[in-house]
Design a protein around this nucleic acid. Structure first.
Lengths: 132, 132
DNA sequence: CAGAATCCGTTAAGATACTG
DNA sequence: CAGTATCTTAACGGATTCTG
């Protein structure tokens, strides 16, 4: 029979080892970043263009989100010389390289979100947890 | 020349359409959930076992994280009849199905985190933004 | 149009101490 | 061992108002 290893499989420095992965919540754990990236998938967009699909976002949050993505090198901001052309946001190559991994996660969610909701309902409903 | 579509590519209900994806930050945007899932990858673990690799987590946060994962049906909690055996946490099949998508994201981060850090340093250092 | 500034309520996270 | 309880701080998110 397989005896589970006491502690060895989990090196004490696992936290450090996984540190890069801790950047995931750091950068994409917020409410809007992932959505903004998807909205830029088909090409550059202007500030007010982005507000349409994300119709619940306030200008403050959109600015904040875009600054964060810009800071991480995922999104570029270009203010045209002609102000009439507005300010355009676009994915950088780095940002674009994120689309595929994101699609994988979205695919999982799309496939399993009913299960997640069902589980939550069971967990939250005492009656369903102790079936007669 | 390719003329960008004005607004059509972004349906007004994009937010609704992406709603499932909003569950990603909802469930994995917190600081510890993703890390806990990885720690359960190799098999069931006990409460205090999990605290070792995540040595910065307080019992309160670990409890909270585990409850959340349990609620979503990703992790199961089994308290053995013999208290000496303790309480074991394990991935459910649903939780296990998440490992592969997570690996894809981690792979991306592992490949690109230097770029992310470099970009942030450039963004944060005014001197580097206006090269002489 | 593309934000900036301010205020405010909610939630997340952590420290600390205690319990069956 | 496996948590609970309480408190404090920090971060997130949003409403509103204002500006070049």
């Amino acid at each position: 029979m397989t005896v589970r290893q006491p502690l060895e499989p989990l090196p004490p420095d696992l936290f450090e080892e996984l540190c890069p992965s801790a950047m995931v919540p750091f950068r994409f754990g917020d409410k809007w970043s992932a959505l903004v990236i998807r909205c830029l998938e088909d090409g550059p967009r202007r500030f007010s263009e982005l507000r349409v699909p994300l119709h619940r976002v306030t200008p403050k949050m959109l600015t904040q989100t875009l600054r964060g993505l810009e800071r991480s090198g995922l999104v570029s901001r270009t203010a045209h010389a002609d102000p009439a052309l507005g300010v355009e946001y676009a994915l950088t190559p780095l940002g674009r390289s994120l689309l595929e991994p994101m699609r994988v996660v979205y695919g999982w969610v799309a496939e399993h979100w009913e299960e997640l909701l069902d589980a939550q309902e069971r967990y939250d409903t005492p009656a369903l947890r102790n079936p007669a």
